[in-house]
Amino acid sequence: MDTYKLILNGKTLKGETTTEAVDAATAEKVFKHAANEHGVHGHWTYDPETKTFTVTE
């Protein structure tokens, strides 16, 4: 398992979190669910070198 990071750049919610996942696709599902639960919808990017997802509203 690897550690993946999410950076939230929402209009009303900003922050960072991490998750352990077997691959980037699994981490993305976890992060998108969490972002949706917090009402953050926007443009997603992924940097494979740093294993970091970013969502920007």
Rank of each mutant, 00 (worst) to 15 (best):
T18D: 05
Y46G: 00
L13N: 09
I7V: 10
T3V: 13
A25I: 11
L6K: 00
F31N: 00
T26N: 08
G10N: 04
E37D: 09
A21F: 04
F53G: 01
D23Y: 03
W44N: 00
K51R: 13
H41Y: 14
L13H: 15
K51S: 03
L8W: 14
T50H: 07
T45P: 00
F53S: 00
V40L: 10
L8N: 02
K11N: 14
F31I: 01
T54W: 06
K32P: 00
L8P: 01
N9V: 13
D23M: 03
A21E: 04
H43N: 12
T45R: 07
E37F: 11
K29Y: 09
T19A: 07
V30I: 15
T45M: 09
W44K: 00
E28N: 04
T26V: 07
H43S: 13
A34L: 15
H43W: 13
E20N: 11
P48Q: 08
V40S: 03
G10Y: 07
D23N: 09
H41R: 10
E57G: 04
H38G: 08
M1W: 12
F53E: 00
K29M: 13
V22H: 11
G42H: 02
H38P: 02
P48Y: 07
D23L: 03
E20I: 13
T56G: 04
A21I: 02
T12I: 12
E49D: 14
L13Q: 10
E28D: 04
K32T: 06
V55E: 01
A25R: 09
A24F: 13
G10P: 03
A24I: 08
E16R: 05
Y4D: 02
Y4I: 01
T56K: 05
M1L: 14
H41V: 13
T52Q: 04
V55T: 02
T50P: 02
E57S: 05
K5M: 07
T17R: 13
E20Y: 12
E20D: 10
E20F: 12
H41L: 09
Y4M: 01
L6A: 03
N9F: 08
A35T: 06
K14P: 04
D47G: 02
M1G: 09
G42L: 03
H33L: 15
D23Q: 03
H33D: 14
K5N: 05
G42N: 02
H33M: 12
D47P: 00
H38C: 14
M1N: 09
T3Q: 08
T52M: 03
H43F: 14
L6W: 04
A27S: 02
G39Y: 05
E16H: 08
G15P: 04
T26I: 07
D23W: 03
Y46H: 01
K5W: 08
K32S: 05
M1I: 10
K14L: 08
T12W: 15
D2P: 07
G42T: 02
G10D: 03
H43L: 13
N9A: 07
Y46I: 01
H41G: 06
H41W: 10
E57H: 05
T17N: 06
L6H: 01
P48N: 07
H33R: 12
W44A: 01
K11E: 11
T3G: 04
A21K: 01
E16A: 07
T17F: 15
G42W: 08
K14C: 15
Y4N: 01
T18K: 08
V55G: 00
A35I: 08
W44E: 00
G15R: 12
A25Y: 10
N9K: 09
T52A: 04
T26W: 08
T26F: 07
D23A: 03
T19D: 02
P48H: 09
G42F: 04
E49Y: 11
A25F: 10
N9M: 11
K32H: 10
I7Y: 06
A27W: 01
L6C: 10
A25Q: 12
T54G: 03
E28V: 05
H38M: 15
K51W: 04
T56V: 08
E16D: 05
T45H: 12
A27K: 00
K5F: 08
K11Y: 12
M1T: 11
A27Q: 00
K14F: 12
V30F: 14
P48E: 11
E16C: 12
A24W: 13
A21Q: 06
V30N: 07
K11I: 15
K11F: 15
A24E: 07
D47N: 10
G10M: 14
T12R: 05
E20G: 05
K29S: 10
T19N: 03
T26S: 13
E49P: 08
G39R: 06
A24N: 04
A35N: 03
K14Y: 14
E37W: 09
E28T: 03
Y46D: 00
Y46P: 00
K5T: 13
L8D: 02
L13C: 15
A24R: 11
E20Q: 14
Y46S: 00
A21G: 03
A27M: 01
V22E: 12
E57Y: 06
F31R: 00
A25N: 09
A35K: 01
Y46T: 00
H33G: 09
N36P: 03
V22N: 10
D47Y: 05
G39A: 06
D47F: 05
P48M: 07
E57K: 03
A34E: 10
G39H: 06
T3L: 11
A34Q: 13
N36I: 14
T17V: 15
F53K: 00
V55Q: 01
K14D: 05
T17K: 12
T56A: 05
L13A: 08
T3Y: 06
T52P: 00
T12Q: 11
A35P: 01
E49Q: 11
T50L: 08
D23I: 02
G15W: 15
H38Q: 14
E16W: 10
F53Q: 00
L6D: 02
G39L: 05
L6I: 04
E57N: 04
A24H: 09
T12H: 15
F31G: 00
K29Q: 13
M1H: 08
D2T: 14
G39P: 03
T45S: 13
K5Y: 11
L8Y: 13
H38E: 09
M1P: 08
T19E: 04
H43A: 12
T56N: 09
A24C: 13
D2A: 13
T3H: 06
K5E: 03
D2Y: 13
T54S: 05
K29L: 12
N36Q: 14
T3K: 09
E28M: 13
T17P: 02
Y4K: 01
T45E: 12
E28I: 07
A27F: 00
T17Q: 14
E20L: 14
G10W: 06
P48L: 06
K11M: 14
G10F: 15
T50N: 09
K51P: 01
V22D: 07
T3A: 05
A35R: 01
E16V: 08
A24P: 10
V22G: 09
H38A: 15
H38D: 05
F53I: 01
A27P: 00
T45L: 07
H33P: 03
F31W: 01
T56I: 08
L8S: 03
V40F: 12
A34G: 04
G10C: 10
E49H: 12
T50W: 05
V40T: 03
K32Q: 11
A21W: 01
V55C: 06
T54C: 08
A25S: 09
F53C: 01
L13D: 06
D47A: 06
H38T: 08
T45V: 09
A24G: 04
A27I: 01
E37I: 12
D23R: 02
A35C: 09
E20A: 10
K32V: 08
D47S: 07
H38N: 10
I7N: 04
K14E: 06
G39Q: 06
D2Q: 14
N36V: 11
F31Y: 02
T54I: 07
D23P: 00
M1E: 07
T54F: 07
E37G: 08
T52K: 03
A27D: 00
H33W: 10
T52C: 06
E16Y: 12
L6M: 07
T19S: 05
F53N: 00
G42D: 02
E37M: 14
T18S: 11
A24Q: 09
G15I: 15
E37R: 10
V55I: 08
